[in-house]
């Protein structure tokens, strides 16, 4: 067990070092390369109003998605579960797109707030529909989420076909996980919900481990499976809703990051959850930095880059698993 702890510590330390390096690269890179040794007022302005908030929000969004994916894969006992399979992103997208396309902009935070409300309302609807006579069963919850997700996506398509051109473009960008429009304003609310969700998940980490073995074993270990699943679902919903509301829909991180983390440090939720936060945040930060430099001055959405890098890596990992 000592070797186990030792290797986990080494992986965590390596990840933190990589994370710090990528944060530094993300802050410095962009259409204009920032040099920390020659800071003028324009450089400071770019740093404080563009790069730092963007990097911080990418870290938070990716971290929240990584942890949500780890939670949902555990409570559904399904390696394909991710924060978007439950319709939460569809609810957020519909509400935010409604605001973007029909010009509902009473104040600057109206789109994030609409997205958050849409995500939480969808999460609540999934829980209500997913609750059967045996409590919150994974299969029923999953089916409720997929069903609601498809319905909301269909409504979203309908709304998009009825929208004006400019609003449509902005909505499509938002749904691709575009971080070019973020600023400090969305940070406090997003941060508070992510911290709340992560804190709640960490207090239920043992329940998450037990649920991964099935409800009967979780019960035998003294847990109430329905209660644990509900708390963990709320935690994942909070983090996903906060992430989507800050910068739109970024796919793939919630699916792939927990798998990569578990591959290196095992599956104990006490380790997987915090490391999924660090790995998810770092990965999105990297994707965003690449997205805004690789085709500059054109900016590619971070969500698109994350999927373009993540998918081949994921397939590579699957290939490796097959050969072992």
């Amino acid at each position: 067990m000592k070797r186990d702890n030792h290797s986990t510590f080494l992986v965590a330390a390596a990840l933190c070092v990589a994370s710090l390096c990528i944060i530094a690269i993300s802050v410095a890179s962009g259409p204009r390369l920032l040099n920390p040794f020659s800071m003028d007022s324009e450089t400071c302005r770019i740093l404080l109003t563009l790069r730092l908030p963007r990097t911080a929000i990418a870290l938070l969004m990716g971290g929240a998605l990584g942890a949500s994916g780890a939670i949902l894969q555990g409570i559904f006992r399904n390696p394909l579960a991710d924060p978007y399979i439950l319709g939460i992103s569809s609810g957020a997208s519909l509400a935010a797109s409604f605001g973007l396309m029909f010009g509902i902009s009473l104040f600057t935070l109206s789109v994030p707030i609409l997205a958050f409300i849409g995500a939480i309302a969808t999460g609540a609807a999934v829980v209500i529909l997913g609750h059967g006579w045996k409590g919150l069963q994974p299969e029923r919850l999953l089916l409720a989420g997929v069903g609601i997700g498809f319905f909301l996506s269909a409504v979203l398509m309908l709304v998009m076909t009825l929208s004006v051109d400019d609003g449509l473009r902005r909505a499509v960008l938002w749904m691709s996980g575009d971080l070019s429009m973020v600023d400090w304003g969305v940070l406090p609310v997003g941060l508070s919900f992510i911290v709340t969700g992560l804190g709640l998940a960490l207090t239920r980490r043992r329940g998450l481990n037990a649920l991964t073995l099935g409800d009967d074993i979780a019960h035998s270990l003294g847990f109430n499976p329905t209660r644990e699943r509900l708390f963990l679902f709320i935690a994942a919903s909070f983090m996903t809703a906060a992430s989507v509301s800050m910068g739109g829909v970024v796919g793939f991180i919630g699916l792939v990051v927990p798998h990569v983390v578990r591959r290196h440090v095992g599956s104990d939720a006490a380790v997987v959850l915090p490391l999924s936060v660090v790995a998810g945040g770092t990965f999105l930060c990297l994707a965003d930095a690449i997205g805004r430099t690789v085709a500059a001055p054109l900016e590619l959405p971070a969500g698109v880059i994350a999927a373009l890098i993540g998918a081949p890596y994921f397939i590579f990992l699957l290939g490796q698993r097959k050969t072992h």
């Binding site: 006992r77 481990n209 991964t212 073995l213 099935g214 019960h219 035998s220 578990r262 599956s267």
Partner: peptide, 14 residues
Amino acid sequence: AYLPQILDLQAPFR
């Protein structure tokens, strides 16, 4: 303590 008939023998744990 109770162990059900069907155990998750592929559980992702060490």
